[in-house]
Computed example of a mutant assay.
Amino acid sequence: MKLYVKYMVSLRCKLMVKQELQKLGLHYTNIELGLIEIQENLTNEQKEQLKSNLAASGLELLDDKKSILIDKIKNIIIEMIHYSEEVPKVNYSDFISEKLGYDYTYLSNLFSEVKGITIQHFIIKHKIEKAKELILYNELNLTEISYRLHYSSVAHLSNQFKKVTGHSPSYFKKTGEKRRKNLENL
C-alpha cells in the first residue's frame, strides 16, 4: 500500500516516519521523500492514528489526488536540487513530466492553481536556497555552484540570486548572512 506524506522533505523526516510506523507495528518496504510503501493494508483506525502521529511531528498524510500530485512534483524538485549530485541531462520540465508520466502543461497548470506560483518559480527558489547553502559551506566557488545548479553562467545565477534575496552572492558570502529557509516553507 502506498501512502503520501506532505512536508516530508529531509532525511530526519524519513527517520521520524520510520519510528511512527514501528510504533504502530507496520512494516514498510520503501520510504522516500513524500512516499511510504507498507506491506499491510491499513484499517481506518490505523490510518487515523498514523495521520495523528505524523501531524504531531508537522507531517501530513495526503488523501486527495491533486494534493498527492502536487506533493510528488515538490518532492521531485527537492530531491533533484538538494539531494542529487548529478545535473539533469534534460530540461527540468521534461524531467518532471517524464518522472510522473503526465504532460508538463497539465502539471504546471495544476501546480500554479493549487500553490499560487509556477513550477519554474518554485525551482528557482530552491536553487537559490541550495546556492546559499553551498556559499555558506565555502567549498565551491560561484562558477562551480552555477554549474552544479544547472545555470548557464555565473551571471545568470547572480541575477536570480539578487532577484530572490535582494543581495548578490558575493555580498551574501561576505556578510556571512545565515538566513536560510526551511525547505517545507518554500
Rank of each mutant, 00 (worst) to 15 (best):
L107F: 05
E86C: 02
V114T: 15
I38D: 02
D64W: 11
D71W: 01
Y104F: 15
F122L: 07
Y151P: 00
A56P: 00
L69Y: 10
I38S: 06
I145A: 04
F172Y: 15
E45N: 12
V154M: 12
I73A: 05
Q120L: 07
A56F: 11
D94N: 09
L54D: 05
F122N: 03
N91M: 14
Q46S: 11
V114G: 00
G116M: 09
I96D: 04
N141K: 15
Y106T: 10
L107E: 01
I117G: 03
G166P: 06
G58I: 05
K74D: 12
K173R: 14
L142A: 06
S93I: 01
I73E: 04
H156T: 14
Y104I: 12
Q120N: 11
Y151G: 04
E86D: 09
T143C: 02
S153V: 13
N91I: 06
D64M: 11
D103P: 02
S152V: 13
V154F: 12
G116Q: 10
E79I: 00
F172P: 08
L54Q: 05
N41K: 10
K51Y: 06
N91Q: 14
L136I: 14
V87Q: 11
N53Q: 12
I96G: 01
S108D: 13
P169K: 11
E133R: 15
S93D: 05
L42N: 02
L157C: 11
Y102T: 00
K66L: 08
K66C: 02
Q39D: 08
N53C: 03
A131T: 03
E60D: 04
L62T: 09
K99G: 04
D71M: 01
I145P: 03
K127N: 08
L42C: 03
E45L: 13
E40L: 05
D94V: 13
L110T: 08
H121I: 01
D63M: 05
S112K: 15
S93P: 00
N138F: 07
N75P: 05
N91G: 12
F161D: 14
H156E: 15
S93R: 09
M80P: 02
K74L: 09
Q49N: 13
I145G: 03
K127G: 04
K115S: 04
L134S: 05
E113A: 12
I76N: 01
G58V: 06
T165P: 14
P88C: 12
E133M: 15
T165K: 15
S108T: 00
I96F: 02
S158E: 11
D64V: 10
K65I: 07
Y171F: 12
H126A: 11
T105R: 10
K173C: 03
K66V: 09
S152K: 14
L140Q: 07
E45H: 10
L140I: 07
